[in-house]
Design a protein around this nucleic acid. Structure first.
Lengths: 116, 116
DNA sequence: TTCACGTGTAAGAATTCTCTTACACGTGTC
DNA sequence: GACACGTGTAAGAGAATTCTTACACGTGAA
């Protein structure tokens, strides 16, 4: 995964996933070792449902990986760990990714000239 | 600016600024050469007020630089160009930035344990 | 004066994001 | 059975983003 040239859409998803303080904190914490959801929520100091949502976002972007495991006492634990991603953000790198953006049409129409 | 270790807050602002398809397109376009607002709006195909807003966001994040200049025929033109930024996104880099995040208190309180 | 072209900004709607609260299910232990 | 601890998800409020439309001002040319 390291050194991969992301498509425009992938890049936007990754950047959006990392542009949140809490998610940044989640990744940073997981960088120190894998952990399961409930415990991670306690460590970071966030409610479990909230953490659950953010982990989904991070996993969708491919920044963390989760795996459901069974503990010795039969409990279903969901462990998460960071993926070893490596993205470079430079004007040139962005320019290379932009051509592969799938029309992010503003809202309705693709803009017309102002002042008819 | 290249190779600088950003603070957590700076990093969040930069990532938020780049996590939008249109802003990514703006940076990519400016990477091909400086331009003034009205023309850039035509080139990209977006309304000028909208472009103006996005440029503000990019400039606030330090990704583009604007300068008001007077053209030969006396018009005030605002030219923008990309800053030569270079950010590295790896688990380790993020972990290094996170400690400098200024309390991004969720919403109201700092979360309490669930299930009283 | 009027038109073309540059600048900036404010008001409002539609959408998305963030977060809390509440519910559901399963398993091992007291 | 009741409790502790793990999982997942849905409903709703509040705030932030994104975008359009409309207005303001200034200068040179017809």
């Amino acid at each position: 995964m390291t050194g991969t040239r992301p498509t425009g859409d992938e890049l936007v998803e990754v950047l959006a996933a990392l542009s949140n303080p809490l998610r940044l904190r989640i990744v940073a914490t997981l960088a120190g070792g894998r952990d399961y959801v409930s415990n991670l929520a306690r460590v970071i100091g966030v409610s479990r449902p909230l953490l659950h949502m953010h982990l989904q976002r991070l996993e969708a972007a491919g920044l963390v990986v989760g795996s459901l495991e069974l503990s010795d006492d039969g409990k279903a634990m969901k462990y998460f760990e960071v993926a070893d991603f490596d993205f470079t953000l430079t004007p040139a790198a962005l320019a290379a990714a932009v051509p592969t953006l799938t029309t992010p049409d503003p809202h309705r129409g693709p803009a017309r000239e102002e002042r008819s």
